[in-house]
């Protein structure tokens, strides 16, 4: 395993999580992760030595967008894992967590991606702007829209107002 591959290895949990936040499905996120890793490994010589996580996530974002275009006309698939395979671990407050997950699912893809990169991957706004190739103002407006949408959905369920998730 060369240095590039070793570096890549340490970001695997982040990449897996990001793939899941993009595709919102266990199987599609694994497919996306594989495709992204394959591409990153093939193009490793063009990596300039700066933030590797951000570089690979940019590849993944682009691949996800391409996939959306490519499979736009395919039959719709619906993830049903929760219906059949029991989730390994449920949250201490499953109702709140399910609602939050549902609210995230309802976000438009562009807003969801920014929100997840900020909250889950702890990326800076500037990194996200570079990664998604958008102005920082757009990052802020997508983040703001995402937070407002989630609050609106959760307010309907009295989740944030009356329950502390932690």
């Amino acid at each position: 395993m060369d240095d590039f591959e070793k570096n890549l290895l340490q970001f695997m949990p982040n990449l897996r999580r990001y793939a899941m936040s993009l595709s919102r499905s266990a199987q599609e996120s694994e497919d996306l992760l594989h495709d992204c890793l394959e591409k990153a490994l093939a193009k490793k010589h063009s990596w300039r030595g700066d933030n590797l996580q951000s570089w690979v996530m940019t590849i993944m974002t682009n691949q996800f967008r391409n996939k959306l275009k490519k499979y736009a006309n395919q039959p719709q698939t619906v993830p049903i894992e929760d219906e059949i395979i029991p989730t390994e671990e449920r949250m201490c407050d499953p109702l709140a967590m399910d609602k939050i997950e549902g609210a995230i699912d309802q976000l438009p893809e562009d807003n969801r991606v920014v929100l997840m990169l900020v909250i889950v991957e702890n990326c800076s706004y500037a990194e996200i702007a570079k990664m998604l190739d958008i102005p920082i103002g757009t990052v802020m407006s997508r983040l703001s829209r995402a937070r407002k949408s989630i609050a609106k959905i959760l307010d309907g369920h009295n989740i944030i107002s009356f329950r502390r998730p932690l």
Binding site: M12, R16, R17, E89, I100, E101, I150, I160, R164
Partner: peptide, 27 residues
Amino acid sequence: ALQNAAIGKLYTSAHAETSAADIAADV
């Protein structure tokens, strides 16, 4: 901040600590 905490917890829980077996599989 509550949203952040809840979403962070949701994803931390769903993708719990990486085990040695996970790392071996990733290698």
